[in-house]
Write a protein that binds this DNA or RNA. Structure first.
Lengths: 98, 98
DNA sequence: AAAAATAGTTTGCATTGCAAACAAGTTTGC
DNA sequence: GCAAACTTGTTTGCAATGCAAACTATTTTT
């Protein structure tokens, strides 16, 4: 049993928990909600996209760029698995000779 | 609410969960149980000691050095707090405007 | 038209996890 | 009895990562 490092990072875990509950969320919403710097948020989203956990949707809001994010099936599955794995650790049932 | 990075590292979280349940555990027991390298384990234990979460007890088993570890009150508290914080994240109740 | 704001991205640094190399002694084999 | 191999850890060095400052590109304000 391996803890998923992509999800384990607290900022990304929070992002995944947010995305799990909504249709989609945009850059500024996440920024305000999480209190990260923009650079930091940008990198985290890249990482989540590289893992195939979210989709980045770029468009324009009027003339300004507008970026929003959507969790993907793979991301939902990974998130669920993550919590299950953590439950195992919590119960101690990840140790041999239980 | 801040996730405790000292505990958050999966290897150290497992170590803390083990130490929580026993009087004390020695180096080789942790080594075999967790499947880390010796160097890696040594560093993790240093980190936990620096945080004041465990006590390192050095003695001799016959003529060979023998190192064992014991969780401290501060460590127990931090571990409990850690799980509480993670529960908050899980419930989404760490977000503003809940 | 210059200055400030918006919306992100890229770069660079400091920290950290990890294993290889090292240290210090002990036991085994010849 | 001494060299080789084992035990028990620690230290060193590298690669990856989180983080914020600096940058890009465009738009809005003054």
């Amino acid at each position: 049993m391996e803890i998923d490092k992509v999800i384990h990072e607290p900022a990304r875990l929070r992002i995944m928990m947010i995305l799990q509950g909504v249709e989609e969320a945009d850059f500024n919403f996440l920024l305000n909600t999480l209190g990260l710097t923009r650079g930091n948020l940008s990198r985290h989203m890249d990482k989540l996209e590289s893992a195939g956990y979210i989709k980045i949707k770029k468009s324009f809001n009027g003339k300004l760029p507008y970026t929003s994010y959507q969790i993907m099936k793979k991301g939902l599955g990974a998130l669920e698995q993550y919590w299950q794995n953590l439950d195992q650790v919590r119960k101690g049932s990840d140790l041999p000779a239980e």
